[in-house]
Amino acid sequence: MDGVHDMGGKARYFGPLPTIDPDEPAFHAEWEGKAFALALLANRVSGANLHAFRHAIERVPEPEYLSGYYERWLASAEILLLDSGILAPGAVAARAENLRGGRVEEPAVPEPHKPTMPSGGGGNLRAVEEAPAFAVGDAVTARTSVPSTHDRLPSYARGRTGTVTAVQPAQVLPDTAAHFVGENPQHVYAVEFAAQELWGEDAEAFTLTLDLYESYLEKA
C-alpha cells in the first residue's frame, strides 16, 4: 500500500545523512525503552502479530510517523489496543492529562474483541507443500497493482523485472496476516534488479535485491 512508510527512492526524503555514532545506545531516554517494551506487550495483549504491528505503524498519521521511531511505536501500540477493544478511544489522552495534574473523566473500559486467527506455529517460517513456481535464474516481474491494505512490495519495484537469485524459506503472507484473515504461507524469492531497471539509464552502477512473496510476482 502507498503511504509515508514506503520511503525507498522518494525524493522528498532525500537530504543529508545523519552522523554515525558507533557507540549509540539502544535507547536515548528512559521513555524510549518503555515505548519499545510496551509496543511488544501491546502486540501480545491485543492478540495481534508482527504484520499487524507493522501495519499499525503504517497507519500512524504522517507528522507523527516522521516525529521519531519510538514515537511511532508508541502510537502503533495504542492503535492495536484500540482496534482490539482493550482501550477506549481517548483513554491514553485522559490518563496523560490526569497524570500531569488534570482532573478529567476517563472513558469506561470497553468490551475487548481480540482477533482470532489460527496460527501455524511460532515465528513466520512455514512449510509449503506446493513446489515453488519460480527457480533460480528465472526472470520475474513484480505486480503493478497497489493494494489499499498491507503489503511488502516497495513502490519503486512495482512493474519492474528482475532475476530470481535464491528461493528463501516459505513464510506467512504479511498481506493477509496483517488483517487477521489467514497466514496463507507462500514461497519467497530473492529477486535481483539492475539499477537501470529501477531508476533509468543514468542510475549509479549497482544491483538491488528484494525478498518477494510468490503472489507479488509473475514470469517475465
Binding site: 525507498g8 515465528g123 528463501q168 524459506p169 513464510q171 519467497v188 544491483t207 538491488l208 518477494l212
Partner: peptide
C-alpha cells in the same frame, strides 16, 4: 560491485 539488500520479508 555494489549490492543493496532491501529487507522486505523475514529474511
Amino acid at each position: 560491485e555494489v549490492r543493496v539488500l532491501d529487507s522486505s520479508s523475514e529474511v
